[in-house]
């Protein structure tokens, strides 16, 4: 059987909220190392990779690997029933048809029990190469969300260009064009707002803003986001889960998006 308790149900709620609009159904693979989910959107343009290590959990027991086929919007509906400071326990039998979800308030005076029906999901799995990226930009996740939202006003495709000086987001559409440049900042009052760029060579790629917009729904998870790019490969937009700022969390939520190219 599988049983795991997370001290903050809100963390799981934020994770599922962040992906439920991009991916409807997904298999959460549970093993002794933790919980993992890999799923593509219906057009196979973007991919979500969620890793929750056992360290994140107050209690984690997995006797045998289990695949939990989950309808994410429905899971999100149940997670919304948790209180802000509730803990959450997930339980499933080896061949069970349901996922049990139990919320407990801090003083344990309120216990809510739910069951979510599991599904058989025939999902395609992709091998993501473990590669080093040419460019890694770390910035405020709220700022990234704002830029993506602002770019969407003008068009559907955003160019992201990076040099040592800064990262430039550009868009053009029927009503005109715009661009926003963020300069690399070494000393800022607020650490969370710093922009740091590690790069080998300048890179510029084009991406569909619709998908970048979906990714930014993960902003409440972490004040910082890491954007990784290399020429002609998918961009990675990554958030730590259950960690603080730039420090490695015990989990991560990464989004991959295939670039747009000249036809």
């Amino acid at each position: 059987m599988f049983e795991a308790t997370l001290q903050k149900a809100s963390t799981l709620k934020k994770v599922i909220e962040a992906i439920k609009d991009l991916v409807t159904d997904g298999n959460i693979e549970v093993s002794e190392t933790g919980m993992n989910l890999q799923a593509m959107d219906s057009s196979h343009v973007s991919l979500v990779s969620l890793v929750l290590h056992t360290d994140m959990f107050e209690h984690f027991r997995c006797d045998r690997n289990v695949t939990l086929g989950i309808n994410l919007p429905n899971f999100a509906k149940i997670l919304k029933c948790s209180g802000n400071d509730d803990s959450v326990t997930l339980k499933a039998q080896d061949d069970g048809e349901n996922l049990a979800i139990v919320f407990e308030s801090e003083g344990q005076e309120r216990v809510s029990e739910f069951e979510l029906k599991l599904m058989d999901i025939d999902a395609e799995s992709l091998g993501i190469p473990d590669q080093d990226y040419n460019t890694n930009v770390k910035m405020s996740s709220a700022e990234f969300q704002r830029i993506v939202r602002d770019m969407t006003v003008l068009g559907d495709t955003c160019s992201i260009g990076c040099t040592k000086e800064g990262v430039k987001f550009s868009v053009s559409g029927d009503l005109g064009q715009g661009n926003i440049t963020l300069r690399q900042t070494n000393s800022v009052d607020k650490e969370e707002e710093a922009v740091t760029i590690e790069m080998d060579e300048p890179v510029e790629l084009n991406f569909a803003l619709r998908y970048l917009g979906f990714f930014t729904k993960a902003s409440p998870l972490c004040p910082r986001v890491t954007i990784s790019m290399s020429p002609d490969v998918p961009i990675v937009v990554a958030y730590n889960v259950g960690g603080e700022k730039d420090t490695e969390g015990a989990g991560s939520l990464s989004f991959y998006l295939a670039p747009k190219i000249d036809e």
Partner: peptide
């Protein structure tokens, strides 16, 4: 005009 590529052209199926 920019065309959208698919992830399967970058990542192999497992």
């Amino acid at each position: 005009k920019k065309g959208q590529t698919s992830l399967s052209s970058f990542f192999a199926k497992k």
